[in-house]
Amino acid sequence: MERDDKAAKKADPSLQGGWPSRAQLHRWLNGELKGLPYSGHCRVLEAMFPGRSAHELFATAAVEIPAQRTEPEPARSAGPDVAANAPQLADVTAVFSSRSAFSSAYPASSLLDDAKEINAAGLSLNILCQSCPDHQLKRLLDSGTRIRCLFLDVKGQAIRAREAEEGYTDSTRTTLTALNISMLTRLRDRLDTTSAQCLELHVYDETIRFNLLIVDRALCVVQPYLPQARGVNSPTFVITDNTAAEGLFPVFDQVFRDMWERSKPV
């Protein structure tokens, strides 16, 4: 208040002792004042804040309020809208750049250990014949698991065409496929009649397009055969049947069924 009294005395000695009260100051600060204070109070305030008029001191700060948008602001994106162009994955649950990458994530034991039905089609079917030991396959067959294997016919033209495409001149694919068929045939011969009936071996002689492994009519592993590339280097897709209207599982399940019907037993 001493400062207020000095300002009042400076502005006009007659105003000394007539400075604004504390209550008045609170009303001013709370915006309760309509218009300007008494002229004497204005003169005191102008003396306290040199260079500022009473009008300036009590002016309401103008705050710019953005106008309400009538249309949504367009998305700021460097490319096309992601949501609108999101890939439709259907029932594909995993994709790998090669069979080795797939095998690291999905070991054969984890895929097949509790299976009740296994359908496999391809060239040499190494995932069954080279990745699963005989005792595991025997245990599955003895427990009633049905295993159907569809090999590329070692006596046919398709396997030779595939060898030529991959650049083999020494019947490498034919020899490996014959070895795998022989391994499963010997295993079947050692089984009792009931278990042996659960293991079916067929061959087909058609242009090879896919390596398929279907487990329990629920999980499908698909590999396309690429030109001049070994199967181990092919991308691998894992498909889980979720009854999607546009799912891929029924497509490849039907591919196996059709090939099986056209094949012949070993």
Score class of each variant (00 low, 15 high):
A178V: 06
V203E: 07
R160A: 06
P107M: 08
A105Q: 07
L15V: 03
V251F: 09
A196M: 06
A78F: 10
D253M: 05
A108R: 01
E2A: 11
E71S: 13
A196Y: 05
E56Y: 09
D4W: 09
R190V: 06
A75K: 10
A7T: 04
R173E: 11
G18F: 12
D192G: 13
D170P: 07
S143V: 09
D81R: 07
D142S: 14
A8S: 05
S131M: 13
C129K: 00
D170Q: 04
R52F: 15
P20K: 04
R160V: 10
L141H: 05
R217E: 15
I65Q: 04
P50K: 10
C42V: 03
S195A: 15
D153F: 02
T194C: 10
F237W: 12
L191T: 05
G35E: 01
K138E: 13
L213M: 11
V95R: 07
M1D: 00
A83M: 11
V232Q: 15
N85A: 12
P250A: 05
L128S: 02
A23R: 12
S263T: 01
R188I: 00
P72D: 12
S53L: 05
T70K: 15
A161I: 09
G156V: 00
A61M: 14
T207L: 07
A7K: 02
C42N: 04
V44A: 00
G35S: 03
G156S: 08
A178S: 08
A196L: 05
K264P: 03
A120M: 06
E261P: 02
Y204M: 04
H135G: 10
V92H: 06
D216Q: 07
S14T: 11
S109N: 13
C132G: 05
P133G: 07
T193Y: 10
F49D: 05
E166A: 02
M48V: 02
P50Q: 04
A164D: 08
Q254L: 11
L219K: 05
Q130N: 15
Q254T: 15
E46K: 01
R22S: 10
S124E: 06
P72F: 13
S131Q: 15
P66E: 13
L152P: 02
V82K: 09
Q228M: 09
Q223L: 11
S97V: 15
I118W: 01
D189R: 10
C198H: 14
T172K: 00
G167C: 02
V232Y: 12
E73W: 12
E73A: 15
S98Y: 02
P107Y: 05
A244F: 08
A54V: 10
T60F: 12
S234L: 01
